[in-house]
Design a protein around this nucleic acid. Structure first.
Length: 875
RNA sequence: GGGCGCGUAGCUCAGUGGUAGAGCGCUUGCUUCACACGCAAGAGGUCACAGGUUCGAUACCUGUCGUGCCCA
């Protein structure tokens, strides 16, 4: 069969994914005697599409999963999606509006039906993209946060927390998005530094002369001021504490209070207090029992309390108020400044702090065990430094606002009596009020999406039922996610997991960095610099994308995406493809590999390299060092297997056709092992190639992970080092004078001792071919080796290479060349000798380091000697 | 203001207590019977700076500068 010289990922990837899935390889073995390895996939938004960050994270997880599956573990990777409350609602709302439908007109139920319909139609998109990536997830266990089972878990958790007094409802200042029209938790607010104006306003004193100057960046809130606060020890204001001022424009009389919160350094040291519109003022208001006057409504417009300004948008109101204040002459001055402004994470609108009735989780009691689990090392962060971010947050945790004023999500299981207003929190809706038997209605709000995400590791496995999956796969082994989600998700999973199952939800939290664009900028819609992984896969293949992402990633570090890297990775796929193509082309029809005998240097050498690669990779994969592991197999396949081993076997088979069957078996054996090592990184191409070679078993993905081969003690590594050094030196001489590769020349190889000569001669045929020699004369230095006059000189490990070129070599030039090499060698020698002359070094440095230096010295001394002699010969 | 990263070849990045590596780019030569998405040979770095620990620091510690992120 004619095989293309170019590998086409597009033609094979889909085929193998279907093959794997149909054979059920993605499902766990359920073997109770095997170690268990489980991961729950961080659920992407059901409305979303895969971005490069997902691609990286899913690649990491797939590497772990495939590695452990090959190790023989009972391995589960559970996929799923998240209902993404606000985001999805906005998306469907937008769609309906484009059709001229207002969700408020069709009502809650009809709208939710629309969302479900939308989810069924488009919600699978991201999962199809996960497939394209090659993710070996168990599709039979696919979950969605709004599934019945998971919803049941949500209700159960809410009810239990309520019964334990860990959920409460109360009036509190929360972050309100006037665009999304819902409350948000603290971490859903993004703070950004923005230019603003600090306006200094004169509030005239009531019943006396003079005024107090307060500074504010939000003059429109003055209509809701209920006090002016100063620091209790501030000498400038101390005498006015307890006096009153009049708020301009509305003429409200408010007290001057003393509160240590006030920073005397900021502004004038006196601040206006608006308890209904600022979180700090709210706290102060509580301390001093100040009234709350809401002047901005949930729609971002001024309320009735704002008097003449009622109905104005907050921005318009600010402009109007400033104008009016100006007219009144109460503006003392205005300063430009940069200050931090909170924005809605979802829509970017400036947050309006508002007092409203919301549900909260009392987090302190949950945080305590969550903190302990990480401190004790029961849960480990990779990289470890993120522990600190986690513990800092946990130590300063604030209550979690969990109610959202939207329709799409888990509705809060709280029921209110229409008569006596009794609140009933229950697993199932009560028919009537348990107190007065009056009619009840359910809370209109839904829960924060993260409330259900926090239960993901166990709700997906059937909790609160005691299922087999829960017993077998929970706690999970690893949670892999981005570091920017530690607070939103990781922390809350730990809290809920420990509280409800008594066990950590996962043993390891593995964190990856952000994937940025090629210029290091965050990928974003507004910049239009996002990279669609599907385009990349279409162009280069999923394997290439995976390898490229893994090669340039280290845990916790951001990385840049660039097409060039993916291209490099696809070239590697092509390289491996061609290596295997070469092996196949040499296999006779119906060839069955036999048990190999390793009777020559290159065989022993390549297996030794393979062993090292296997050992390192196994360790690195266990330590989550995917980049290191990928680099190891990349180098092994390209440098060791392709550039040296295959080339050596070509010569070997030509010289020893009678043993070619063994050589072919070796080629197949090493290739198969290497493909297995590469498989977690590049599942498709490795399957394609593995299937094309003689093999045992049905799929590489269920083949056992390689373990190092037993080898007899041997010197293959040393021999190959010397041989490679000799070949490189000889090739270097050729290149120096631009000898065309076709031109066969005569070489003289002079070894320092008989042992080196013997080593070289073990690979004499290979050396002859690889340096393109007409013939080679072999010598040992001591035995009166020839001293060719008109020859290029090269020094290598253990000896010299001469390339006699009558008529081409200029003695003076060659002398200068040798001189230059001598100088170089001399410098190195001096360094080593200085080190060895230091008694402290010999005493305190570890023995192998000293030995190595001594060895180095000997080699350099010998090299110097050779060069000196040569230099004299050239005189 | 507090915390955490990063600063290594032209570019993008790995990495290690024993004075440095990759990919891309660059130079030279090659259609050598797996691969020109290739082969071979090369050029290119006082590992940001200053102290300290150490026999030895690019790596560990302290500080400085530059840069990025998170929290308040």
């Amino acid at each position: 069969m004619e095989l293309s010289s170019q590998y086409s990922a597009r033609d094979v990837e889909h085929k193998w994914y279907t093959f794997w899935r149909e054979r059920g390889y993605f499902k766990p073995s359920m073997d109770p005697s095997a170690p268990t390895f489980s991961i729950v996939m961080p659920p992407p938004n059901v409305t979303g599409v895969l971005h490069v960050g997902h691609a990286l994270n899913n690649t990491w997880q797939d590497i772990l999963i495939r590695f452990h599956r090959m190790l023989g573990d009972n391995t589960l990777w559970l996929p799923g999606t998240d209902h993404a409350g606000i985001h999805t609602q906005m998306k469907v709302d937008e769609l309906l509006r484009s059709q001229g439908i207002d969700r408020r007109e069709i009502g809650r139920e009809a709208f939710i039906d629309e969302v479900w319909r939308w989810k069924e139609k488009y919600g699978g998109e991201i999962l199809r993209q996960v497939e394209k990536l090659g993710a070996s997830v168990d599709w039979s266990r696919l979950r969605f946060t709004m599934d019945q089972g998971l919803s049941k878990a949500v209700t159960e958790v809410f009810v239990r927390l309520y019964e334990e007094g860990l959920i409460y409802r109360g009036y509190y200042i929360t972050n309100w998005c006037v665009s999304c029209r819902t409350a948000l938790s603290d971490i859903e607010v993004e703070h950004e530094d923005e230019p603003g104006t600090l306006t200094y306003l004169r509030y005239p004193l009531d019943q006396e002369e003079g005024f107090v100057v307060v500074a504010t960046t939000r003059p429109e809130t003055m209509l809701g001021d209920t006090a002016v606060a100063v620091h209790p020890d501030d000498p400038r204001w101390k005498h006015l504490i307890g006096h009153h001022v009049r708020v301009p424009l509305i003429d409200r009389v408010i007290p001057i209070i003393a509160d240590a919160y006030v920073d005397p350094e900021y502004g004038t040291g006196a601040v206006k207090v608006t308890p209904a519109h600022d979180p700090n003022d709210f706290q102060m208001g509580q301390r001093h029992h100040l009234p709350q006057i809401q002047v901005i409504g949930e729609d971002g417009r001024m309320t009735e309390e704002a008097g003449a300004y009622q109905g104005l948008d907050r921005q318009q109101a600010r402009a109007q108020i400033l104008q009016d204040l100006e007219a009144l002459g109460v503006i003392e001055k205005a300063e430009a400044l940069v200050h931090s402004v909170g924005h809605c994470e979802k829509c970017g609108t400036v947050i309006e702090p508002l007092v409203s009735l919301q549900w909260f989780v009392r987090t302190a009691p949950l945080a305590e065990p969550a903190l302990a689990a990480v401190r004790s090392g029961d849960i480990q962060f990779v990289p470890q430094r993120f522990e600190k971010i986690y513990t800092n947050w946990m130590e300063n945790i604030r209550d979690w606002c969990i109610s959202r004023q939207i329709w799409w999500g888990h509705r809060i299981p709280a029921y209110y009596c229409d008569h006596c207003h009794e609140v009933t929190v229950a697993r199932t809706a009560p028919d009537s009020c348990p107190v007065c038997h009056g009619p009840v209605h359910q809370d209109e709000d839904v829960l924060d999406t993260w409330f259900s995400s926090a239960l993901w590791p166990f709700s997906t496995m059937g909790w609160p039922e005691e299922t087999t999956d829960l017993a077998m796969f929970y706690p999970t082994s690893v949670l892999s996610t981005a570091y920017d989600i530690i607070f939103f998700w990781v922390a809350r999973m730990v809290m809920q997991g420990l509280h409800f199952t008594g066990e950590r939800p996962f043993a390891t939290v593995l964190l990856h960095g952000l994937v940025r664009d090629s210029q290091g900028r965050k990928m974003s819609k507004s910049l239009g610099n996002g990279v669609d992984p599907m385009d990349v896969i279409e162009k280069y293949g999923a394997d290439a994308l995976r390898l490229a992402l893994v090669l340039s990633s280290a845990p916790g570090n951001d990385q840049r995406y660039s097409d060039e890297r993916v291209e490099a990775a696809s070239r590697f796929a092509n390289k491996v493809y061609n290596a295997i193509r070469y092996v196949r082309m040499n296999l006779p029809e119906g060839f069955t590999p036999q048990a190999v005998t390793m009777d020559n240097v290159e065989d022993l050498w390549i297996v030794q390299k393979l062993n090292q690669t296997t050992q390192h990779m196994t360790e690195w994969l266990k330590d989550f060092e995917f980049g290191q592991a990928a680099r190891a197999i990349y180098d092994f396949l390209w440098d060791d297997y392709c550039d040296w081993y295959i080339e050596l076997t070509k010569i070997h088979m030509r010289e020893n056709p009678e043993t070619s069957s063994n050589t072919l078996s070796m080629l197949v054996f090493v290739a198969e092992q290497a493909l297995k090592l590469l498989h977690p990184f590049m599942p498709f191409v490795t399957e394609e190639l593995w299937q094309s070679l003689p093999h045992q078993g049905d799929s590489i993905m269920v083949a056992p992970w390689p373990s190092p081969q037993n080898l007899p003690a041997n010197r293959a590594q040393d021999v190959m080092d010397r041989v490679q050094s000799l070949i490189r030196t000889a090739r270097n001489l050729r290149a120096e004078v631009n000898l065309p590769p076709g031109q066969r020349v005569h070489f003289q190889m002079v070894a320092d001792d008989a042992e080196t000569l013997a080593d070289w001669q073990m690979e004499a045929a290979a050396i002859r071919e690889m340096v393109r020699a007409q013939d080679i004369s072999w010598h040992v230095k001591a035995e009166g080796a020839p001293k060719p006059h008109h020859a290029l000189t090269g020094v290598c490990q253990g000896g010299s290479v001469y390339l006699p070129l009558e008529g081409i070599v200029d003695l003076a030039v060659e002398q200068a060349r040798v001189q230059k090499t001598m100088e170089q060698t001399q410098r190195e020698l001096e360094r080593v000798e200085k080190q060895l002359a230091d008694q402290k070094f010999r005493e305190r440095a570890p023995e192998p380091v000293v030995a190595k230096a001594q060895e180095q010295r000997l080699e350099l001394v010998a090299r110097m000697e050779r060069l000196k002699e040569r230099w004299e010969d050239l005189q």
